[in-house]
Design a binder for these strands. Structure first.
Length: 626
RNA sequence: GACCCCAUAGCUCAGCUGGAUAGAGCAUCUGCCUUCUAAGCAGACGGUCACAGGUUCGAGUCCUGUUGGGGUCGCCA
């Protein structure tokens, strides 16, 4: 039991004795301007004590001083009872944990957790938005592992559909047999290139027709298409609001675009794919293969990994049996055209389509099926989906559906929703070429790390291989820390110029603190643990370091509960700062008192463990020197 | 139009389930390396917590409304 919870237990007993209250007290850290370690706010107990705030605080303080061996003294300011911990307790805390490798981690639990993240489309290379997803997902998985859970990291790859066919068609027509080998391009970038080629060709091909259609000129042999256009055109004439006009124009553009020769060929290719056409499948496999090779190297470089891959080409037909089950149970209902719906208006949502009139799946149909599949394969108690917040509504619907279908695992489903990454210029838009490519960004960061490190010259003499690994680690820690220290739920701004900063509240700052400790420990005399225990009182900065360390277990716990690696990042900054203050104020190896040296080295060692463990929770490898 | 999320220092962000005089980093300015890693430490400057009400002994935090920003409401995924 740690000091804080032991103290809380003592206070609870006192409150029961004095006022007959039976509730756990809430303790705060005492603000630095006051004397004390923990503060109890007594306002909530005034009713029970029948006294004023100061008197109540005094009374509780006196009773506590008598009862608890933890307390050295107390002081009362208004309704605040500041408690000073017997300094010996901090020594005992240090003694107990300084050499514990897994300090802060939870005890093993039987609960099984699946974290699904990454989940890319196979038509474009990864970009900055994916990186936030990947870093969050991997970190959440590490957090739950640290919390003692059995974790499966899953990746559901969207490897089929019209967007994949676009790349395939463009390559077929304009590729001249280009391959990653022949072009020297990374596979995912090569396929992405043809996706862009397709979009450009499509724009060229359908541009004039769109222009004409927006002027009211559109002729099509298909009567249905013609009617839809005519209706839209009529609406456009009547529309007054700017927003509405833009929407109708978009509809018309899409209608015309979909009738272009390229789009028709693309749709035909998708039908061939679904029919199992050998040639189409072969091309699909080849090009997806290139993409996977590219993704694998990017994931590896980003330091993320997966235990299980799902592919939409396998799962896109799933869920139909559950649709039938839902119809039988009366959870879903049929419309005249044969489409299947669920009415979620009781839960404040809308009616939602779950299967098309022709019996084919929509997005959510697959998700229903995949949820069931995950449960059957892994018996997961908790299933976490790391997906952007633009899908908040979708997951609300999905989880409600699973609940209404009576799935026991529905309550364990959670959408780890995160905000978009904005650039100083605004939203990333692939059409405007403002996306930040993952591979480019990684390389820029590595180059920056090398330049900074070389300029400082502290690593001279290390073998090149080690240096390269160091640059990778430092670059990654800067990037991951920059992204993970922000509350996942909030949208965040990524300024490429500033993110490369290695000073202040950054990953390299934490790494630096760790490397500095490791350097001390490497140079420590072999027999330092032999010295007698120190009797001297600790300084305030030393106690502050131990207080910060003591918060690690609770931080891990809270980070799991809130699905927020940001809490760990903030803790890392607190801890590194707390240590750096001690470092600045006291000596370690230069300390002439052997007992004090021993105590400080224990603190250094414990801090290094905690830093390394917490960094690992963010998916960052701690470096030994820098 | 309906619903969801967000708004804290010039900039980027913390602020735990309501608690004392709202905190960091960057930027600007001042100090500290012949001593264990200065990617560090210490200090200064900088705030009507978007606005208006309300609940409370106490509100950046909870409720209502307003404004501003983003998202969703596709038989796209």
């Amino acid at each position: 039991m740690n000091i804080e919870s032991a103290l809380a237990a003592d206070i609870q007993a006192v409150l029961k004795d004095l006022y007959g209250l039976d509730q756990g007290p809430k303790l705060d850290q005492t603000r630095p301007e006051f004397e004390g370690d923990f503060t109890l706010v007594v306002f909530p107990y005034l009713r029970a004590s029948q006294r004023g705030p100061e008197e109540t605080a005094q009374q509780i303080g006196e009773a506590l001083l008598e009862r608890s061996s933890l307390i050295a003294s107390f002081n009362v300011i208004k309704g605040f009872l500041n408690l000073v911990i017997q300094s010996g307790n901090w020594g005992a805390f240090l003694e107990q944990h300084w050499d514990q490798d897994r300090f802060g981690f939870g005890t093993p639990k039987t609960e099984k957790v699946m974290v699904e993240y990454a989940s890319p489309n196979t038509n474009k290379p990864l970009h900055l938005g994916h990186m936030r997803n990947n870093f969050l997902g991997y970190s959440l998985a590490q957090l739950f592992k640290a919390g003692g859970y059995d974790v499966v990291m899953a990746n559901l790859i969207n490897d089929r559909g019209i967007h994949i066919c676009k790349s395939m068609l463009a390559w077929q027509r304009f590729g001249n047999g280009e391959t990653p080998e022949s072009s020297g391009l990374k596979g995912d970038h090569l396929v992405g290139k043809y996706y862009v080629v397709f979009e450009n060709a499509l724009r060229e091909q359908s541009g004039p027709a769109i222009e004409a259609a927006l002027q009211g000129q559109f002729q099509h042999e298909n009567q249905v298409v013609q009617t839809r256009y005519n209706q839209a055109w009529t609406k456009l004439q009547e529309a007054k609001e700017e927003k509405q006009i833009a929407k109708i124009k978009d509809d018309i553009k899409e209608l015309v675009r979909n009738q272009s020769e390229l789009m028709l060929a693309c749709q035909s290719m998708l039908r061939d794919w679904e029919a199992g056409d050998a040639e189409t499948l072969a091309l699909w496999k080849t090009m997806n293969g290139w993409v996977y090779e590219g993704f694998d190297s990017t994931w590896k470089r980003m330091g993320v990994s997966f235990d299980k891959f799902y592919y939409e080409s396998d799962t896109y037909t799933l869920g139909k049996d559950l649709i039938q089950e839902g119809l039988d149970k009366g959870v879903f209902y049929l419309k005249e055209d044969g489409s299947v719906w669920i009415d979620l208006r009781d839960d404040g949502l809308d009616e939602k389509l779950v299967q098309r009139g022709d019996g084919t799946s929509v997005y959510i149909t697959q998700d229903i099926g995949t949820a069931q599949l995950k449960y059957e394969e892994f018996a997961v108690d908790r299933s976490i989906y790391v997906v952007g917040n633009e899908q908040d509504y979708h997951f609300k619907v999905l989880f409600l559906i699973m609940e209404r279908l009576g799935r026991s695992y529905a309550k364990g489903m959670y959408h780890a929703s995160y905000g978009m990454v904005d650039l100083p210029s605004g939203k990333m838009k692939s059409r405007e070429g403002t996306v930040v490519d993952a591979d480019d960004l990684l390389q820029e960061m590595v180059d920056a790390a090398r330049e900074t490190t070389e300029a400082l010259g502290k690593t001279d003499g290390l073998p090149q291989e080690e240096l390269n690994a160091l640059y990778e680690s430092l670059a990654l820690s800067a990037l991951k820390f920059f992204i993970l220290k922000v509350d996942p739920k909030k949208r965040m701004l990524f300024n490429p110029a500033e993110s490369i900063d290695f000073q202040g509240d950054t990953g390299p700052f934490v790494q630096y603190s760790h490397a500095r400790i490791r350097s001390i420990l490497r140079s420590a005399p072999a027999d330092w643990t032999q010295a007698p225990e120190a009797e001297e009182a600790m300084s305030e900065t030393e106690i502050n370091l131990l207080k910060t360390l003591a918060q690690f277990p609770d931080t891990v716990n809270q980070a799991c509960l809130q699905y927020s690696p940001a809490l760990v990042a903030q803790f890392l900054l607190d801890l590194a700062k707390a240590f750096n203050r001690v470092y600045n104020e006291h000596s370690f190896l230069k300390e002439t008192n052997a007992s004090l040296m021993k105590r400080r080295l224990k603190m250094a060692s414990m801090t290094a463990h905690a830093l390394r463990n917490a960094l690992n929770l963010l998916g960052i490898q701690a470096v030994e020197r820098m």
